[in-house]
Lab assay of single mutants.
Amino acid sequence: MAAAAAAGAGPEMVRGQVFDVGPRYTNLSYIGEGAYGMVCSAYDNVNKVRVAIKKISPFEHQTYCQRTLREIKILLRFRHENIIGINDIIRAPTIEQMKDVYIVQDLMETDLYKLLKTQHLSNDHICYFLYQILRGLKYIHSANVLHRDLKPSNLLLNTTCDLKICDFGLARVADPDHDHTGFLTEYVATRWYRAPEIMLNSKGYTKSIDIWSVGCILAEMLSNRPIFPGKHYLDQLNHILGILGSPSQEDLNCIINLKARNYLLSLPHKNKVPWNRLFPNADSKALDLLDKMLTFNPHKRIEVEQALAHPYLEQYYDPSDEPIAEAPFKFDMELDDLPKEKLKELIFEETARFQPGYRS
């Protein structure tokens, strides 16, 4: 834990890192770190609560700039109880001085990944967590956004079992017609939660990839272990087919990539493993919904509104309290091709509203 900075004593240090967030945020305490930044909790002297502050230093890398800009653009436009918001952003007053960006968010005690390492969940908890994931996802999908990296560590939890989806750095506007060349190379989302079509096709992607990830998360809540822990690309596919069985001819016809289709045709026939054999203690309604989410063919996979209306979630289902976005989200430009200098300018502009004396 960093010592509390005395008023006016300059930035606090946390594990050798400068955290320049005073005077409003003090009493910093280390939480963890990701690929390009550290997260601390801090005391907000204005709202009198502890908050989470993520320090991001992305400006050396085009990919990190892209992810940072995506996350900020999306989260500043989203407003939903099951999606983490941005409360404040701290950065230098000029673009030349801006080396880091500090993002202030609600402090959540833990995440689903940490929880599943230590606790076996009751059916009631599984049901409530799944409902909140789908409630947040309904809003995301209504904005025409794909999260693309749903996994237990991106689901934040607090002691009252509130759940918030975080990390929109890989999110995209849904565009089933656009052929994202190089899709697989830039697709760094965790393999275990990846839909089979991501490994088999490169053309376009749809909201059904997020539903697949939610199915993987439900299976993990039922058993405290990942359902498809593939060691590499082909191993991942083999794990999936080992449980779902061989795809039907109709399902194979959806695979545009001939090499991928021929690979699947070359494999020995596998039978589907019954879900109640894998999860003998699970609620039968939970397994019915799991089956509809972990469907090989993305066109037959359940959609988020149908999933919310499934009998497993009937005690929570309330369409009048499951809000959607006001308007579909649009990125003005494809960020993939922009140089990091341009992305830095866009991050600077996007964060201006939090600067003292800002006038829109």
Rank of each mutant, 00 (worst) to 15 (best):
Y36I: 15
T159L: 12
S246A: 08
R194F: 06
P176H: 07
H232A: 06
K272A: 08
L28K: 04
Y36M: 15
E334Y: 09
N201K: 15
K272M: 08
M13Q: 04
T185K: 04
T118G: 09
P152Y: 01
D100L: 13
R225V: 02
R191G: 05
M199A: 10
E71G: 15
E326I: 02
T206N: 13
L116C: 04
L258A: 04
G230D: 14
I31L: 15
T110C: 10
K54Y: 02
D288K: 05
C166F: 12
A327V: 10
H80W: 01
F329G: 00
V14K: 10
E197A: 05
F228S: 02
D321A: 14
R301Y: 04
V39L: 10
L156R: 07
K342R: 06
M333T: 01
P280V: 03
P58F: 15
I74F: 15
G182V: 15
V101W: 08
G204V: 15
R225E: 11
N201L: 06
T110F: 00
Y193P: 03
Y187T: 05
R359A: 08
L308T: 05
F348E: 12
G10Q: 11
L338I: 06
K138S: 07
R353C: 09
W192V: 07
P328W: 03
I240D: 03
Y205D: 12
L200N: 09
P280D: 06
G8Y: 08
N154K: 12
I140W: 03
L157W: 08
L218A: 14
A286N: 01
N27H: 13
A5E: 11
D235G: 00
G34V: 14
D177W: 05
D100N: 15
K151L: 06
E250I: 02
A9W: 01
R353F: 07
Y233E: 05
Y128R: 08
R359Q: 09
A9M: 02
Q62A: 11
R15L: 07
L287C: 02
T68S: 15
Q355L: 15
Y317N: 14
G169P: 02
T26D: 09
R261M: 06
Y128I: 05
I347M: 15
H125G: 08
Y128G: 00
Y263N: 15
P176K: 08
S208K: 09
A35V: 12
D283C: 07
E322L: 01
I89G: 02
Q17M: 04
E33Q: 10
N201V: 10
P280S: 09
H180C: 05
V51A: 12
Q355T: 07
T185W: 05
I324W: 12
R353N: 02
I53Y: 04
C216I: 03
Y113L: 04
P229I: 05
L287K: 02
V188Y: 02
I95S: 08
F329Y: 14
I133N: 15
D124K: 02
P356Y: 05
K330C: 03
L170W: 08
P247E: 07
M108I: 15
K285W: 07
P274L: 09
I90K: 12
F329A: 04
I95D: 04
P229E: 04
A143L: 13
K151D: 10
D179E: 12
N158L: 10
Q249R: 03
Y263L: 10
D106G: 00
N281S: 02
D149I: 00
K203Q: 09
D321T: 00
K285P: 10
L308H: 02
A4G: 05
I243G: 11
A4K: 02
R135G: 02
E96W: 04
E322R: 02
K55A: 07
A327S: 12
T206I: 11
L294M: 12
L130P: 09
K340R: 14
E12N: 10
R277I: 15
M293Q: 02
P274G: 07
K203L: 11
V14E: 11
L290R: 06
E33P: 02
K272N: 14
H120D: 05
F348N: 05
H120Y: 12
K73H: 06
A189F: 04
G230N: 00
L278P: 11
T118F: 12
P229F: 01
V21W: 02
D336L: 04
N45C: 11
A309K: 08
P152G: 00
G85I: 07
W275N: 02
D337A: 12
L335C: 00
L287I: 11
G169S: 11
L76S: 06
A35M: 15
K272I: 15
I140Y: 04
F59T: 12
M98G: 14
P226Y: 03
L134F: 12
Q315D: 09
R261G: 09
F168H: 02
K138I: 14
A143F: 02
L75P: 15
A327Y: 00
C254M: 00
Q62I: 11
Q17D: 12
E81D: 15
R148S: 07
Y317T: 12
G204L: 08
L75F: 08
N201Q: 07
A9D: 12
L258K: 05
M293D: 06
G242C: 15
P356N: 00
Y205E: 09
L121I: 11
T63L: 13
P93T: 14
L308W: 07
L335R: 12
I256R: 11
V18R: 08
Y64R: 15
P268F: 01
L116N: 02
L200D: 05
E326V: 14
R194N: 03
R277N: 07
G245W: 01
L244F: 05
R148D: 05
K259P: 13
V46R: 08
D167M: 05
H125K: 04
I86Y: 09
L137D: 03
K231S: 00
I243E: 01
M221L: 15
K272V: 08
E71Q: 02
S213C: 14
P176I: 08
P226C: 05
F354A: 04
I240S: 04
P247K: 11
A143D: 14
P328Q: 04
D337I: 10
R194K: 13
A92D: 13
G22Y: 04
A171M: 05
D336G: 00
F329P: 00
G136D: 00
N297R: 07
A286F: 09
L107I: 11
L115W: 00
A171Q: 00
V46G: 12
D332M: 09
I95F: 15
C166A: 04
K55V: 11
R91P: 08
P280E: 11
K330L: 08
D44R: 11
M199E: 04
L258T: 06
L200I: 08
M13G: 11
T118Q: 03
D175Y: 14
Q66R: 13
Y187L: 02
N123T: 00
I324L: 13
A4M: 13
D44S: 11
H141W: 11
A5K: 12
R135M: 08
L237S: 07
L338Q: 15
L107S: 01
D235K: 04
L76A: 11
L343K: 09
P11V: 07
H239E: 09
K48H: 13
L346P: 00
A42C: 10
A6R: 09
F78I: 15
R225W: 04
A9I: 05
K259N: 13
T351S: 15
I56E: 13
D149Y: 13
I72Y: 08
L155N: 01
I56D: 14
K48C: 14
E220V: 13
D251F: 05
L241Q: 00
N144C: 09
I56T: 12
P247S: 11
V273G: 00
S320W: 10
G16I: 00
K138E: 09
Y36D: 15
I84P: 01
K73R: 02
L335Q: 14
V51G: 14
P311T: 14
R77C: 04
I198D: 03
R15Q: 09
M98R: 08
D210E: 12
T68D: 15
T68C: 09
H239Q: 15
D149F: 02
E305P: 01
Y233K: 08
L170H: 05
T159K: 09
K48E: 13
N158T: 11
I86V: 00
E345H: 02
K292Q: 08
K48N: 15
I53V: 05
I347T: 11
K340Y: 06
P23F: 00
P356C: 03
N297I: 15
E314R: 04
A174K: 10
C166P: 07
Y102F: 14
F296Y: 14
Q236G: 02
K342T: 11
R50W: 12
Y193A: 05
E250Y: 07
A4Y: 01
P93R: 06
D179M: 08
I211C: 10
Y263R: 05
H269D: 11
N87Y: 15
V173Y: 08
L294I: 08
